[in-house]
Simulated scan of single mutants.
Amino acid sequence: MQGFSVIELIIVIILLGILAVTAVPAFLSRDGIAEQRIQQELLSALRLSQERAMQDVNQRCYGIEFAAMSIRPYECGTAVPPEQVISVAGDVNVTVNSSVPNASTRWLFNSWGCPVSENHTVNAEPCGQSSVEIVITGTTMRYVCVQSQGYIRSGACST
């Protein structure tokens, strides 16, 4: 008299089966997780560097630096804390597409928040020169675009 009937147990088993078939694969799948993490951390680092470049009236040397296995904010040559360094796993590749000189290693933001070369003249390079597209490839492909006018967004840069 105190317990579950067979019909109630069957209904619970069916519901658990439906959940297992639909929800569990979404939680166990690792496809694109590393790329998404790098994309989100990169968006955050770019926006922070851009904000610092626009606020610092004495120095205009804030940007992003690319190394073999890491991406790090560039802050006028000073060391950044380890928690700000974005590590890139071995199965993920990051490439930079831009006409900004040496953009694949380091590029900066000018006082208007636009992407410029490392050797730019302070306030001499206006916005609209070139966009920077960062491509993150692994099991999936993700993009980060810094448009020539300084707008930072996820997605490919339009040509």
Rank of each mutant, 00 (worst) to 15 (best):
V122N: 08
I136F: 03
L43E: 04
S154H: 07
V94Q: 00
G77P: 05
V116W: 08
E75V: 15
W112E: 09
C145R: 13
T137A: 14
S131H: 08
I71S: 00
N58W: 07
M54N: 09
A34E: 05
P25E: 04
E8G: 03
R72M: 11
I7N: 12
G3I: 06
L42E: 04
R60M: 02
Y151N: 14
V85F: 01
S87P: 07
Q55H: 12
S98V: 09
W112Y: 11
P73I: 13
N58Y: 11
C157L: 09
E35R: 09
I86Q: 00
Q36S: 14
A79V: 14
G155E: 08
Q55N: 15
H120D: 11
N110T: 11
R60Q: 02
G77F: 03
G63I: 14
L15R: 10
A53K: 08
S44L: 08
M54I: 14
S148R: 15
L19F: 08
Q55W: 10
Q129H: 09
M1C: 10
V88N: 00
N119I: 08
F66V: 03
T95I: 03
Q147E: 13
L19G: 09
Q50R: 03
E133N: 07
N102Q: 15
V24S: 01
W107F: 15
S117Q: 06
P115V: 13
V85L: 01
N93E: 15
A156S: 15
F109N: 01
L19C: 08
C76H: 08
Y74K: 01
E35W: 12
G32T: 06
R106L: 15
E8H: 02
Q55V: 15
A89L: 02
M1Y: 12
V94Y: 00
Q147A: 12
G155T: 13
L48M: 05
Q39A: 02
Q39W: 03
T139A: 05
Y143F: 13
L48D: 03
C61Q: 04
V132R: 00
G138H: 08
F27T: 01
A34K: 06
S131A: 12
E118S: 12
A34S: 06
T22G: 01
Q55E: 11
S87F: 02
L42K: 04
N119V: 09
R106E: 07
D91L: 10
E35P: 14
V146N: 02
V96A: 00
S70E: 04
C114T: 07
Q40I: 05
S29M: 07
A79L: 12
T121C: 12
E118D: 13
A124M: 08
R52N: 15
A89N: 01
V21C: 10
I7M: 11
R30M: 03
R47M: 10
C157D: 08
A26S: 07
S5D: 01
S99D: 12
S87A: 10
S29V: 07
G63F: 13
S117P: 05
V6T: 14
T95V: 06
E51Y: 07
S130I: 04
C145M: 13
S104W: 12
V144G: 02
G128R: 11
Q39C: 02
L108F: 07
A34L: 05
Q55M: 15
S98P: 11
R47N: 13
G113N: 10
C114P: 06
